[in-house]
């Protein structure tokens, strides 16, 4: 498969990073998308969120929201369900682990997942080699009945950073085997091109190491990545700690956010899930609306002409 994107001219366009074909299409569909009204059973009728943020597609599947939510580390299954509902998540992520003899904990979790009625994205968390990741993906495909896989090949236990070499190798094998690979990667453009080259239609760079909640470690690198791959769905996966981080991701023009710990470890996960839903909508709308350019110096917003006591000699009014 040829590399699709190696186009510095896209970066050089005026308006820089954010004026892309994708955005143009999104703006055109704005009138349609404003009709989207979400209803969340966690909220009263008055609280119903009206969102204008346009939907987006991954591997031909239109997601119902720009949040992908993890299912781990919640205080209870009930709180997990409440948080998923409150988040309006379009996808939930899951995993697989060893099952003890006679244990049926996997079945209970599977029943809970089915009751949430959302697309499921299984991960290969903890895999250290392409072979482990490939076998895990194949087991996940059978268990969860989906060919989607959030591909993690971990290089280092302290940072949980992806092994980009192993990632590309596993992504290639899995794509040949019919998987739709969602690679957990970094903002490295070379690795990103390789991933796209072996068949990944979406990239999931980290914001910060998994579980740190530090937000975007390298906003410049992520902004460059967005500009370099204007037509590729980009999802920030990992490192998001606060709703403001998620809003920042969306303002950068990223397509979606994948997070877990920030919600599951909140004092009130369902309420935090709702906060993220609002932040993601706000950030996306801000991006679609087009952010103003930053300046180094102050610039008055109130018209200067006609300012009372203004003195052309520049000394101001003095009595």
């Amino acid at each position: 498969m040829p590399l699709r994107l190696s186009r510095p001219d896209k970066v050089a366009n005026k308006g820089a990073a954010f004026r892309t074909g994708t955005q143009h299409r999104l703006l055109l569909s704005f009138k349609d998308s404003i009709k989207h009204v979400r209803h969340n059973p966690m909220m009263s009728t008055q609280d119903t969120i009206t969102t204008a943020a346009a939907p987006f597609k991954v591997y031909g599947h239109e997601l119902s929201s720009r949040l992908l939510l993890g299912t781990a580390q919640y205080p209870s299954p009930k709180i997990l369900s409440d948080a998923v509902l409150a988040s309006n998540a379009g996808v939930i992520t899951v995993s697989l682990r060893r099952e003890g003899a006679r244990a049926k904990s996997g079945q209970q979790f599977w029943d809970l997942i089915k009751s949430l009625n959302l697309p499921v994205l299984p991960n290969t968390a903890g895999c250290r080699t392409p072979r482990e990741a490939i076998t895990t993906a194949q087991m996940a495909r059978e268990l969860f009945e989906t060919n989607w896989i959030k591909l993690e090949v971990i290089a280092n236990d302290d940072t949980l950073q992806p092994d980009l070499f192993g990632l590309v190798e596993a992504a290639e094998e899995l794509t040949k085997d019919g998987f739709n690979v969602f690679p957990y990667t970094t903002e490295d453009l070379g690795a990103a091109e390789r991933l796209i080259g072996v068949g990944c239609d979406v990239l999931m760079p980290w914001g910060a190491p998994i579980g740190t909640g530090r937000g975007l470690n390298n906003p410049y690198g992520l902004q460059t990545m967005r500009a370099y791959f204007p037509g590729v769905p980009l999802i920030i996966d990992a490192g998001i700690g606060a709703p403001s981080h998620a809003a920042q991701v969306m303002e950068l023009g990223y397509d979606a956010v994948l997070l877990n710990t920030a919600v599951s470890k909140a004092a009130d996960p369902a309420l935090m899930a709702r906060a993220f839903a609002g932040a993601i909508d706000a950030g996306r709308l801000g991006y679609e609306a087009g952010l103003m350019e930053q300046r180094d110096m102050a610039s008055p917003s109130t018209p200067v002409a006609g300012t009372p006591f203004f003195n052309l000699e520049g000394t101001g009014s003095k009595s």
Binding site: A72, F109, T135
Partner: peptide, 28 residues
């Protein structure tokens, strides 16, 4: 190596084999 459910019957075990049996779990 992954063994699909449909091939477990024909998959003979030998001494020293390493088997993984996994189930759905919460994940991020």
């Amino acid at each position: 190596d992954f063994v699909p459910a449909g091939r477990r019957c024909e998959t003979k075990l030998r001494a020293g084999d390493a088997i993984e049996i996994v189930a759905p779990r919460q994940g991020g």
